[in-house]
Design a protein around this nucleic acid. Structure first.
Length: 172
DNA sequence: TACATGATTGTTGGT
DNA sequence: ACCAACAATCATGTA
């Protein structure tokens, strides 16, 4: 008789230590670039802000936060401060069970797939652009802009793959 | 007038 | 494998 839950296999390790629990190491954000230029919109500087660079996909937490923000603001229209929603959201998020977060993770996972796709296109562009030396390159070259080939195809919202027992409620 | 900030967690990319 | 930065939000603050 093997383990009834052979699925888990040797994953008995308890989350164990978290390398860094407090990311308060330091608030590194914008490298402080108070350029007197005021608007960093179009600076011929080397501030390459790739407009094509896809932003990172929102994690399950952010997906949940998006909806949570609405609820939070709906019940706290007086609250003003992103930190308020962040704290409340973070607390609530931890209060949710894996099953509750499942739908959010599912969506986040989907976003990630799209992100990878966009990244691919972006990467391609970078490769082309990387070839700054387009002096006498008679090659066809730059053939980008083929992204969004299939912008909207699957809009299905059915994530009902309940074949396996996914009763993963937090039961510490 | 306009941008940076603050606070949350998760994910991604780089070394 | 680990570290560091960034993803949304939006009123407030500073220059």
């Amino acid at each position: 008789m093997k383990n009834a839950k052979g699925k888990g296999a040797a994953k008995v390790s308890k989350e164990a230590l978290k390398p860094v629990d407090d990311r308060k190491i330091g608030k590194r954000k914008a490298p402080s670039k108070p350029d007197k230029g005021s608007a960093p919109k179009a600076k011929k500087e080397k501030a390459k802000k790739d407009p094509n660079k896809p932003k990172r996909p929102p994690s399950a937490f952010f997906v949940f936060l998006e909806e949570f923000r609405k609820t939070f603001k709906a019940e706290n229209p007086n609250v003003k401060a992103v930190s308020a929603v962040g704290k409340a959201g973070g607390e609530k998020w931890k209060s949710l069970s894996s099953a509750e977060k499942a739908p959010y993770e599912a969506k986040a996972a989907k976003r990630k797939v799209e992100y990878e796709k966009l990244m691919k296109a972006y990467d391609k562009k970078q490769a082309s652009s990387a070839d700054d030396d387009e002096s006498d390159k008679s090659k066809s070259e730059v053939n980008d802009e083929d992204d969004e080939a299939s912008a909207e195809d699957h809009q299905e919202e059915d994530e009902e793959e309940d074949d396996d027992d996914e009763e993963d409620e937090d039961d510490d």
